[in-house]
């Protein structure tokens, strides 16, 4: 399969080219395309493996950026690494399970006493008794 074409090889009117697909991918994913354009966009993606693959990779990139910068997921990653890495994870292991696990793994950070003290001082307020006598953590 390839881009939708007329029998003479010319592009089908109204169906976007691969270049147009790439240009408007963000709008497509965010639902910002008008319905008529969205339908033609979807028709192209259905018929064009390169564009379908590009869309898949574009979406995967967004997901990776979000997940790989998430500190909670970092804790899960460390646990996974300690257990032999992702290769050792059970087949079919649902990544969504990580979202449940990460909450359980998230350890409560130490109370930011120095932050409390600095802000209270800057605001001209009394240092709370809970912070007195404690230094930077």
């Amino acid at each position: 399969m390839s881009c939708p074409k007329n029998p003479d090889g010319t592009p089908v009117k109204g169906i976007p080219t691969c270049k147009e697909i790439c240009e408007f991918l963000c709008d497509y994913l965010e639902g910002d395309l008008p319905e008529s354009k969205r339908t033609n966009f979807a028709a192209h993606l259905k018929a064009c493996p390169p564009c379908a693959e590009y869309l898949h990779q574009y979406e995967a990139t967004i997901k990776l950026a979000r997940k790989c910068c998430c500190p909670e997921a970092e804790k899960v990653a460390q646990q996974v690494a300690a257990s032999g890495g992702v290769q050792a994870m059970p087949k079919g292991w649902d990544p969504a399970a990580c979202d449940k696990i990460k909450a359980a793994l998230a350890s409560k950070p130490p109370p930011p006493d120095d932050m409390v003290k600095a802000i209270m001082q800057a605001m001209g307020m009394a240092i709370p008794p809970s912070c007195q006598g404690k230094g930077h953590k």
């Binding site: 881009c3 693959e53 990779q57 990776l64 997940k67 899960v76 990653a77 996974v80 690494a81």
Partner: peptide
């Protein structure tokens, strides 16, 4: 000029749970 990709799009080898791989992150 006709709007097609100049170079083929190499498919990505799926790496399940890639976001939990320390090196990948």
């Amino acid at each position: 000029d006709d709007g097609h990709f100049e170079m083929p799009i190499a498919s990505w080898r799926e790496k399940p749970n890639a976001e939990y791989d320390i090196e990948m992150r």
